[in-house]
């Protein structure tokens, strides 16, 4: 699903966030990305979502070298990825339903199909009864589940999560992680950046550990060099 080949990322200020990272995440695999803050976790996720471009090296998504994706095609690239954020990034002036429907509206799904797909996604995260509420009326864990419903509603083959449990207590965190496992079980590839080592250890999924922009432990496959 994802391959990194000797990827470097240097920001404009000169800060080098990634220094030659290589790994491969197989289709339908779920893995954790861990390391201290500033180790390069967020940069790595941003490169996949084309929020940043690598300085050197190749990022392959679904067989495509994404450095070839032109700027105006970035939106279509992002529709293949469901993204989940620590701060949820919901639209606070719109209902839960409208938040979850947003990717479908953007992708041009017909009005006829939107309601059932939104409800299916909300049902999966257990928020079917909250669709009319505003995000502000929900708890932190519920808001995060709205974020997850929004990420999966368009059935993307890949989920990226950046510290999805950062603000949640251990019990809620475990629930959220179980949710990700359910998506993985139906064939979605999942990559979760987190520094909650205890939780990660209990989950028994491959871990990629970064330190100062370098891979210090890689339980995933090495990326093959195919030229």
């Amino acid at each position: 699903m994802i391959e990194f080949h000797q990827v470097f990322k240097r920001y404009e200020g000169g800060h080098e966030a990634l220094k030659g990272v290589s790994f491969a995440l197989a289709n339908g695999e779920m893995a954790f990305l861990t390391g201290h803050s500033g180790a390069g976790k967020s940069t790595l996720l941003k490169l996949i979502a084309l929020m940043e471009r690598p300085t050197r090296g190749q990022v392959i998504l679904d067989g495509q070298n994404i450095s070839q994706v032109k700027d105006r095609h970035i939106p279509y690239h992002r529709r293949k990825i469901g993204m989940i954020f620590q701060d949820h990034r919901l639209l606070f002036d719109r209902s839960v339903y409208d938040n979850v429907a947003l990717p479908l509206v953007i992708a041009g799904v017909s009005d006829r199909d939107i309601p059932k797909r939104v409800r299916a996604a909300l049902d999966k995260v257990g928020l079917l009864n909250k669709e009319k509420q505003l995000p502000i009326q929900l708890s932190g864990g519920e808001q995060q589940r709205v974020g997850i419903a929004r990420a999966v509603v368009n059935k993307p083959p890949l989920l990226l999560a950046d510290e999805p449990t950062g603000n949640l207590d251990p019990e809620l965190s475990a629930e959220i992680m179980k949710l990700f496992e359910q998506f993985q079980q139906v064939g979605v590839s999942v990559l979760i950046a987190s520094h909650d080592l205890g939780l990660i250890a209990r989950m028994k999924h491959p871990v990629l550990t970064l330190k100062d922009g370098r891979t210090i432990r890689n339980e995933l496959a090495e990326a093959e060099f195919d030229g």
Binding site: R72, P75, R78, R79, M83, L102
Partner: peptide, 15 residues
């Protein structure tokens, strides 16, 4: 912020 969010979920500039 709203624009940033909808760009993240794949909105084109036209949208």
């Amino acid at each position: 912020e709203e624009i940033q969010v909808i760009k993240l979920v794949g909105a084109t500039d036209g949208f």
